[in-house]
Amino acid sequence: MSRREGSLEDPQADSSTSLLPHLEAKIRQTHNLARLLTKYAEQLFQEYVQHQGDPFGLPGFSPPRLPVAGLSAPAPSHAGLPAAERLRLDAAALEALPPLLDIVRRHQAELNPRAPRLLRRLEDAARQARALGSAVEAVLAAFGVPASGPRPEPSPAAAAAASTGVFPAKVLGFRVCGLYREWVSRTEGDLGQLVPGGPA
């Protein structure tokens, strides 16, 4: 697929060249995946919170939103970025999340050994984040946008947080599950803008 298959800037306004059917299908499919994972990510976050005990989940419980291993929440300016840049950021974040979700799962496996559903959700989330990240990269590639370079493994900070005590590890998990929910939801939104005629 050497010919660039349409512009990512604003594909819907570019009336002269409509997206190729298979590219449109790829975007729609990736968007549907993102929408599904947004629902799962919310379920994961609620399940996680429920297993950490009060005050997690109580109104007003809001640990400082420290970046985790170089992965911070989508910036407020994210929405104003060009589509390609947004998708690249989404893909990079989705690629950074699986090792973090693994750290959280290993900690929870020790802390909550009798919460198989939570542990399974964490395991699924790592796999799903990887899958969605790859799908977004594929969409970028189809538009001729170079993929972002390989991301470093999570810095020791993440693993360290999990090892300096149960509470910091609980907060790390709270943070990671929150970031996962934010980035998947953000990816859904960014892809939604590419789907011709709006999301199916």
Partner: peptide
Amino acid sequence: VSPTSGTNVVFTTDTNLVGTV
């Protein structure tokens, strides 16, 4: 008796939150 993941003890300031279990 604590729940499975322990009972959280949390201290909150204006800008931070620290705790133990």
